[in-house]
């Protein structure tokens, strides 16, 4: 089985993002970059699946030269090889999905696993768009039935179940979990409660250096990379205004009803 996974280079989610004074863009100079945590979960899941079923894990990233670091992190986790689509352009989800579709054409994986979203723009679109372009089934927000505290996770079992050409995905949906079966090949996006990604061990970091990492310029794939989504303006969420302390439940209800008009 061949699994293609994504590993996006994103700004460190623990650091506060700065907005240019004119609101035209985000300032990334001086920021730390890390791998998208949802993608780390995707790589982990792929590694557990190939451990159980055999096969190959290929890590994909589209981005600037430095994005190779995040691919190598995937290789250090245990993936077999990497594909780096080099570009300095800001890509929107649609461009990424179309680039990925080209790579899927070449690689013919049985499964593509992506993080459900990247922690920088939180778009949550690339997986769905990719499934659309490929005409494949999609299982988004993949989770684990017993969550992350159960015996399955302790035993480092995959959350996705592959059986008879189908992949069973436990999805996080409003109000609970639903399980769906997808015909393979398929696209799966990972939610937070699918697995705990492993640590990269030091020996594996060293081994990762020797693994194959193909560099391709994104432009050479003949995909129009110009963004379909236009960023108009960035702004901080409005600062929270001070609250009030009320002396009784009755006053609270009265105020919610008459002043804020949020209850009838």
């Amino acid at each position: 089985m061949k699994i293609l996974v994504t590993m996006k280079r994103v700004t460190d989610y623990e650091r506060k993002v700065k907005i240019a004074p004119d609101g035209s863009h985000l300032i990334t100079e001086g920021m730390n970059f890390v791998a998208n945590p949802f993608d780390e979960i995707a790589v982990e899941e792929a590694l557990r699946l190939t451990k159980a079923h055999g096969g190959e894990v290929v890590v994909f990233s589209a981005g600037p030269k430095d994005a190779a670091q995040q691919i190598r992190q995937g290789l250090a986790m245990g993936a077999d090889r990497g594909i780096h689509l080099l570009t300095d352009k800001e890509l929107d989800s649609d461009a990424v999905a179309r680039l990925l579709a080209k790579v899927v054409d070449q690689e013919k994986p049985d499964l593509v696993i992506l993080g459900k979203q990247a922690t920088d723009d939180d778009a949550n679109q690339a997986g769905q768009l990719l499934a659309g372009y490929l005409g494949w089934a999609q299982g988004t927000f993949a989770s684990k039935h017993e969550g992350l505290e159960g015996p399955e996770e302790k035993a480092q079992k995959p959350g996705l179940a592959i059986e008879g050409g189908k992949v069973h995905v436990v999805r996080e949906v409003d109000g609970g979990l639903e399980t769906i079966a997808l015909d393979m090949p398929a696209v799966v996006t990972t939610d937070l409660r699918l697995n705990h990604p492993r640590f990269t061990t030091l020996p594996n970091i060293m081994k990762a250096k020797k693994k194959k990492l193909d560099e391709v310029t994104a432009e050479s794939l003949g995909v129009d990379l110009s963004p379909k989504v236009k960023m108009l303006r960035f702004s901080e969420p409005p600062a929270r205004t001070a609250g009030q302390i009320v002396d009784s439940v009755d006053t609270l209800i009265h105020k919610l009803k008459n002043e804020r008009k949020v209850i009838a």
């Binding site: 670091q69 190598r72 992190q73 250090a76 640590f199 990269t200 061990t201 030091l202 970091i205 060293m206």
Partner: peptide
Amino acid sequence: SEEQRAFYKTALDFVEK
């Protein structure tokens, strides 16, 4: 080097988690 940073990251992740 990138590798040295990767070692550091593993150590940092390990100690924090």
